[in-house]
């Protein structure tokens, strides 16, 4: 353990070292890459190319049926074997997946790391919503939001948890053409402002190009 940490580059960002995922011996996907803070790495490929499996591995949800080798480093720390809740990765899917039993504000409070009084926490969440120009959404039922609003709230929720990297799984594919560009810009802007490394998985060339970073083809 100490051995590896000393040999590892102390670089900030997300490092995927010789990742190789197999299912019953058959290769699924392999990758060796480094995503620097504020940069985007896009993994592109058709469905079934194993790109979601890659995200599952990084986030810590790889089903037992798969075998994986390689190392995942986040800001120099080896997170390969950490449980998902200690990896500090922000996950965004094509669905916003706001918890339907909670209000928008409660969804955000859920993400905020523990600490502080109830009041202070609520204030913090409200201030953040306000800063993002969504103050009026706090009390709403997530099911009543528009697709674009949902996507934005989902991003706010991820950001409030103070992640060290973002993992995006086809996050814009459910949005219509108009909203798509706006939400995409919003997401990448936020990530860049916060200096977060971003791994984007998509089958859509537009998304890949809009991300502006390196593109790796999968499958």
């Amino acid at each position: 353990m100490t051995d590896t940490s000393t040999t590892v580059r102390a670089d900030r960002g997300l490092t995927l070292k010789q990742i190789d995922i197999r299912l019953k011996g058959e290769p699924v996907i392999a990758l060796d890459a480094h995503v620097a803070p504020g940069e985007v790495l896009t993994v592109m490929g058709p469905s079934g190319s194993g790109k979601s499996t890659l995200l599952n591995l990084i986030a810590g949800f790889l089903p037992d049926a798969f075998e994986a080798s390689g190392q995942i480093l986040l800001d120099g720390q080896d997170i390969t074997h950490l449980p998902p809740e200690r990896r500090r990765l922000g996950l965004l899917f094509q669905d916003a997946l706001l918890f339907p039993h909670l209000s928008v504000e409660s969804n955000l409070l859920y993400a905020l790391p523990p600490g502080g009084s109830r009041r202070a926490r609520c204030d913090k969440v409200r201030a953040f919503l306000d800063e993002m120009g969504m103050a009026e959404l706090g009390a709403r039922d997530p099911a009543t939001l528009s697709g674009g609003q949902k996507a934005r709230v989902a991003l706010l929720r991820v950001l409030l948890a103070e992640p060290h990297a973002l993992l995006l799984d086809e996050p814009f594919s459910r949005l219509d053409a108009e909203r798509r560009a706006a939400v995409r810009a919003f997401v990448f802007d936020c990530a860049r402002k916060r200096d977060l490394p971003v791994l984007l998985v998509t089958h859509d060339r537009d998304d890949a190009e809009a991300a502006g970073g390196a593109i790796t083809l999968a499958g």
Partner: peptide, 29 residues
């Protein structure tokens, strides 16, 4: 139930038990 709800919650830093009680049970009430 969409498993990704639980992936999201875990990634937000919650333990499996916490996710079970705060997300799984309410959603399945």
């Amino acid at each position: 139930l969409d498993r990704r709800y639980f992936a999201v919650a875990r990634s937000l830093g919650k333990s499996p038990a916490r996710v079970f009680f705060t997300i799984r049970l309410p959603l399945m009430l």
